[in-house]
Design a protein around this nucleic acid. Sequence first.
RNA 1: GGGCCUGUAGCUCAGUUGGUUAGAGCAGAGCGCUCAUAACGCUUUGGUCGUAGGUUCGAGUCCUACCGGGCCUACCA
Length: 569
Amino acid sequence: MARHLITSAIPYINGIKHLGNLVGSQLPADLYARFQRGRGNEVLFLCATDEHGTPAELAAARANQPVAEFCAEMHAVQADIANRFSLSFDHFGRSSSPQNHALTQHFAGKLEEAGLISEVSDKQVYSNADGRFLPDRYIEGTCPNCGYDKARGDQCENCTKQLNPVDLIDPRSAISGSTDLEVRETKHLHLRQSVLRDDLDAWIDSKTDWPVLTTSIAKKWLHDGDGLRDRGITRDLDWGIPVRKGDQDWPGMEGKVFYVWFDAPIEYIACAGEWADATGNDWERWWRTDKGADDVRYTQFMGKDNVPFHTLSFPATILGSGEPWKLVDYIKSFNFLNYDGGQFSTSQGRGVFMDQALGLLPADYWRWWLLSHAPESSDAEFTWENFQQSVNKDLADVLGNFVSRITKFCRAKFGESVPEAGEYGEQEQALIADLTTRIRAYEGYMEAMEVRKSAQELRAIWVAGNEYLQSAAPWVTFKTDPDRAAAQVRLGLNLIRLYAVLSAPFIPTASADMLAAMQSDDTAWPDDVAAALSTLPGGHEFTVPEVLFAKITDEQREDWQVRFAGVRD
RNA sequence: GGGCCUGUAGCUCAGUUGGUUAGAGCAGAGCGCUCAUAACGCUUUGGUCGUAGGUUCGAGUCCUACCGGGCCUACCA
């Protein structure tokens, strides 16, 4: 039995995520996790909230809450929404956990021992009014290049020129508007990634099967300019993991915390520790190659904006530690999903957010659309028309109606139990052969994480059921050869169970409903399709399910288009 | 400025190492069926593959330039 460690990029804590965030990491990761479990493999699927950093502090301040309290609440909110989206994490952790504190400090200590940490003195802008150092982009002012008066300290959004905060004319704090700013000297730890460049380069080179999106971003950072640069891994903030060398103090670093991008990936490991502490399981057999993780296949899912940290910084941390931690085997990265002609935006409240989506329709609708339109080769676009059309056709007409027509026909002609008479004949064998080919193709796409192609193949499998019914026409054979009709209907009912098993990674709730209607708990993967289609024997009772997927009406669609045209409050 | 990705039917997308008449789903048209959520099935109309050159016996596929869209560019995460 294969063992799969699967992680989704951990969502930031400062708000509820939108559908673009969802489709880029958590959702495809869940698809893969469910598929691997469905095939009988051992899976540990982890996710967490990413809780440190300036935006979290500011969001908490806006909400008038202590940051720890704010994060605890938002974690609960995100966990609830994830659950309602049927995201099947084995554990949904927190990067602020004690486990992550200890492990992050441990890694820093090991990196220091290995000579991979340097102390660098930086000059940084301090806001007296805010009582804090300001990251470059939290300083606003007039662009020296184009005169735009809301240019940020890192870049002018108007003319796209790269800036330094000191370049700005009349700089002010983006938080308070205060102009009482000064440049202060501050010391920070840097991770000497440059030392590990050749190792990282060779490692990336060996990953010939990774998506181009993943490797090209890594290559760019490895070879751009002078090559991979060292990176600051500490910040002057209150909220975060205190800088320590293992369990020892770090002289000169008092009052500083680790940079969020240093501790966030480490949470992938710490999260397994949280899971183990909560369940009594052993986490090291998933993460330590000296303690049983040798045969683990580790797959990460993320949006393209996260790629540098997962291909370079985090591997540098692991390699640099000199300890036998599991390195990622495959990185599946995604482009972005746009919303109706523009970008989804958390900060601007543009688009559809996860909680809102669930207020409109059950998760399966969103799961199906998002996954079947996953932004794999380029950015993709969400429009309400496309969503309505795809969901109505695929889920309501092709799959839902299939379930309806066969169960209702059976109830009318044979009652609510699987008809016993008749045998499968040539037509049925042909269907089995066709389905076998398609299911093997589906498995191949799912193994390769070809998300869109998987969805296409699954849909084709559903269509095959309708084609069969149409040509078998039990409503005709029933009149002349009831036994033949009985066998045809028996096959049709068995198809429902088969579809439930195959479709579960995409639409878990509907799949469970289908199984419940068939009164079956047999979720065995159909390695042998013929056998799978004989699972429900003659005489087995079932119920006619409610409509699986109600159609989205034009009125609903129009209403939603209007409601979601602006920005969120 | 630099790097990477992308531009194929009205829409969303496939097109493997260059190889005969460029594919699928949706939408449109016609026919069939009547078990079903006016659902299903069959057939079918749509494309000088962003533009212009080039390499080649042969290019959607390789090269160059240009045009359009997107992302990244290291202190948001």
